[in-house]
Design a protein around this nucleic acid. Structure first.
Lengths: 197, 197
DNA sequence: TGACATACCACACATTTGTGTGGTACCATA
DNA sequence: TATGGTACCACACAAATGTGTGGTATGTCA
């Protein structure tokens, strides 16, 4: 029991539109797929809803939503690098990564900001000069978390938070940098690192 | 000449809605901000359009679009880590990173896929076990690019592409791994690394 | 055969949504 | 004083959009 070819086409059109910008109206779907009746489109939507791929709100224009399962922003994980025999024709897809999720997750943007990393003090943690560090404010940072911290001299630095005998200090991930015991304030916690080549 | 506080509020509401799911209707904007007339909202939209922050289509529901400049998927770069005196109240924003851009750029999804990195063979390039590697197919890979390559034994590996005397081979970024001189086929080029904490 | 799913259409109607005109009020600047 | 921007409202109307009923036709499964 899965999608009929026509249902698949309707779903793909919705995916496309949702991905591009706006979810389509019922008539827009009909136009694209060559249906002359809105009723036809509604029949398809009903089917897709019953199969759990689509959600809608009553009397709201363009309120079609893709469920997790049907969501477009997914990148196939073909294999784990260094092992396995991935098939590039996407026939051996192991699962999906939600692109949005991968990036920011379900966080709002309000308490998230980015810092471009400069320097090599975290190089042993795989954080390189030029990387973008996504930081979440309102820190519930714990021991061993990598945090952005504000130092007394007004510098912001990315370091690992360590506690020793009940007291916190900061550690670089590079033997050339000594630990920091001076006063600091944690301003956020590292949640994601992104590097573009 | 920039935004009045009220205009800012309208823009922020639009940002929020666009980011969440659907661009709002004119009446939805009015409801949220306490305007009793659709005309009021249209006045604001007109102002935002004139300032180049918003685009719309005629007679299309929910067709409000944020322009590049006002786009929501932007994360402020407050400062460069390890230097500068960033103000967390977002008053010293140096620029913006487009979140979409940061992530995949304007690539389609067709020729992009993800691999989860396993192992430590690229650790000196700051690519750690568990990272997600975004790979672009149709490789125009050059010397020194990091590539996903298919080996003769059907394994896929992430390595740096090197040419020596007109011949290509693969190098790990970890002294414990010897270079690979056997046959291989480049299947894609590393364009982005993402790490979630 | 009956029941049920797929695969459509026509068409009326309700509701939502966008458009447009005209108005009031305040404040700054020329 | 006039002009123009900001900051609203009321209300009518048009257009887009969603809802719903009732059809036809085809095929499959029991």
């Amino acid at each position: 029991m899965f999608l009929t070819p026509k249902q698949e086409k309707v779903l793909n059109f919705i995916r496309k539109r949702v991905g591009e910008r706006l979810p389509p109206t019922i008539r827009e779907i009909g136009e694209d797929l060559g249906f002359k009746s809105t009723g036809t489109v509604r029949d398809y939507l009903k089917a897709l809803m019953q199969k759990g791929l689509v959600r809608r709100m009553n009397n709201k224009s363009r309120s079609i939503e893709l469920t997790q399962r049907a969501s477009f922003n997914k990148i196939p994980i073909i294999g784990t690098i260094m092992a396995g025999k991935p098939n590039l024709a996407y026939e051996e897809i192991q699962g999906y990564v939600d692109a949005d999720d991968l990036f920011l997750g379900r966080l709002g943007f309000d308490d998230v900001f980015a810092l471009r990393v400069k320097g090599d003090s975290m190089i042993d943690a795989g954080i390189l000069d030029g990387d973008v560090a996504i930081i979440k404010k309102r820190p519930d940072a714990n021991n061993n978390d990598i945090v952005a911290a504000l130092l007394d001299n007004n510098e912001v630095t990315l370091k690992r938070l360590r506690s020793k005998a009940g007291k916190f200090h900061l550690e670089a991930a590079n033997a050339n940098y000594p630990p920091i015991f001076e006063e600091f304030k944690v301003i956020g916690k590292l949640i994601t690192v992104i590097r573009k080549y």
